[in-house]
């Protein structure tokens, strides 16, 4: 169930990334996405990951990865060091989201953000009728063991981009098994956005 969702967002990101580009994956986990990109799209891949055992898995796959947290992982990179900076399912665990997104936009020409949609209809129902913290396919944790620091909806993210002058280049909405076209803030479990710094700013 969780793996099926992951494959869909990996598929989408795989489709977005140009062959041969330089990619930084923040919170890369065991390197599954980076490995796909390195093998299939011949990217120059770099990961950042906090969990030591995940680092070993990345190295096993032949990936280059830095052991550290996302919040401080970007600051030493010169501007536009990467074609893509990926924050897939890791933005929610970051301490200072606005700072990290700003830095990601400095370091990468494009930033790919993937996150679970808190306003998914089932979550709303559970909160409204049961009065309890929603547990969904994309937010499967209980309130007491969730690693997520932030809970946001698709509308929240779009509003954030508007406020910060961040340009949305592409938006993809994922349901249980396929893409969502209608009312994504209501019907999408996950979202993948491609953003860049607004050139007008």
């Amino acid at each position: 169930m969780e793996t099926r969702i992951k494959r869909m967002d990996h598929e989408i990101i795989y489709g977005i990334v140009e062959p041969g580009s330089r990619v930084l994956d923040l919170g890369c986990g065991e390197g599954d996405l980076l490995y796909l990109l390195a093998k299939g799209k011949n990217v120059k891949a770099q990961g950042v990951e906090l969990d030591e055992s995940a680092i070993y898995k990345c190295v096993e796959k032949g990936l280059s990865v830095f052991h550290g947290d996302i919040d401080s992982g970007l600051k030493d990179y010169p501007d536009k060091s990467f074609d893509y900076v990926i924050l897939n399912q890791s933005m929610q665990e970051v301490k200072k989201v606005d700072f990290v997104i700003e830095e990601a936009l400095r370091v990468g020409s494009r930033v790919i953000v993937g996150f679970p949609n808190f306003a998914y209809w089932r979550a709303r129902i559970r909160l409204f009728f049961k009065g309890k913290t929603p547990v969904t396919r994309s937010l499967p944790y209980r309130w007491y063991n969730t690693p997520n620091l932030h809970f946001l909806s698709i509308s929240d993210f779009k509003g954030f981009c508007r406020e910060e002058g961040i340009a949305i280049e592409a938006e993809h909405y994922l349901g249980k098994r396929s893409r969502v076209r209608l009312l994504p803030n209501l019907f999408a479990l996950n979202a993948v956005f491609v953003v860049t710094s607004d050139s007008r700013k």
């Binding site: 120059k44 770099q46 030591e52 680092i55 070993y56 990345c58 190295v59 990936l63 280059s64 990865v65 830095f66 052991h67 550290g68 030493d76 990179y77 010169p78 060091s81």
Partner: peptide, 12 residues
Amino acid sequence: KIRHADATYCEI
């Protein structure tokens, strides 16, 4: 990082 090196770092 500044030199765009292909690198891995692990704190064991």
